[in-house]
Simulated assay, not measured.
Amino acid sequence: MAGAGPNGRPSSVRGATRAEDVDDGYPGRDLGLPETGPGSVASAPLRLGQFVLDLLVGGLVAAAFSFPAPPELSLVVWAVLVTVPVAVIGQTPAMVVTGMRVLRVDGAERVGPWALARTVSLFFVIPAAIMDRDGRGLHDRVSRTVVVRTR
């Protein structure tokens, strides 16, 4: 005989629950973050757009220093533009524009030296693509951070 699941919806006859009965959470719930609005976990598409925008900014800054030759140090400039601001204020230039911020999950005020570990992980791209249920890539987990919306 079928019983009611935790949401008042019927569960299967053998006691197994439906997927939506098991996963009633949202990204960031386990971290104590709100589901939507400021402080909620930034979505993957928003983060991808921010990443591309930071790459473009890094390329433009590198081009400004090397003009008229093509920028050869774009990745180095990008790494500095991403690491230093995140370590000090928790935001890259593109994060300011897109309304995001990097926070430490342990509540520390600054990301600090963990920003370097985060940036080094991003060089490999794949760690950023492997996300957990809280919307954190491996680079976020290594650096003990989460990217949240500011607006």
Results as ranks from 00 to 15, higher is better:
Y26K: 06
Y26M: 02
P27A: 13
P27L: 03
G28F: 03
G28R: 02
R29C: 07
D30K: 13
L31G: 02
G32N: 02
L33T: 03
L33D: 07
E35A: 15
T36C: 13
G37E: 08
P38W: 05
P38F: 06
P38S: 09
G39L: 08
G39R: 00
S40H: 04
S40K: 13
V41K: 07
V41I: 15
V41N: 02
A42P: 09
S43Q: 13
A44R: 01
P45E: 10
G49W: 06
Q50Y: 09
F51P: 00
V52W: 12
V52E: 12
L53P: 01
D54V: 10
L56Q: 15
G59I: 12
G59Y: 08
L60R: 15
L60S: 14
V61H: 12
A64H: 13
A64C: 07
A64Y: 07
F65T: 01
P68A: 08
P70T: 07
P70E: 10
E72F: 13
S74R: 13
S74K: 11
V76D: 12
V76L: 14
V76R: 02
V77E: 11
V77Q: 01
W78P: 03
W78E: 08
W78T: 03
W78V: 02
A79V: 08
V80M: 10
V82Q: 09
T83H: 00
T83P: 05
V84W: 10
V84F: 02
V86I: 15
V86C: 03
A87F: 04
V88L: 15
I89K: 01
G90N: 02
G90V: 11
Q91R: 12
T92M: 06
T92P: 09
M95S: 00
M95W: 01
V96G: 07
T98R: 03
G99C: 13
G99W: 00
M100W: 07
M100R: 05
R101N: 00
V102Y: 01
V102P: 00
L103D: 06
R104N: 08
R104S: 11
R104Q: 10
V105P: 07
G107K: 12
G107P: 02
G107I: 12
A108C: 09
A108N: 11
A108D: 07
E109R: 15
R110T: 11
R110Y: 08
G112V: 12
W114S: 05
W114T: 11
A115D: 01
A115M: 05
A115C: 14
A117V: 14
R118F: 10
R118G: 00
T119D: 03
T119S: 11
S121P: 15
S121Y: 06
S121D: 05
L122F: 04
F123V: 15
F124I: 03
V125L: 14
I130G: 07
M131F: 04
M131H: 05
M131D: 04
D132Q: 04
D132T: 07
R133G: 14
G135W: 02
G135K: 03
G137W: 00
L138P: 00
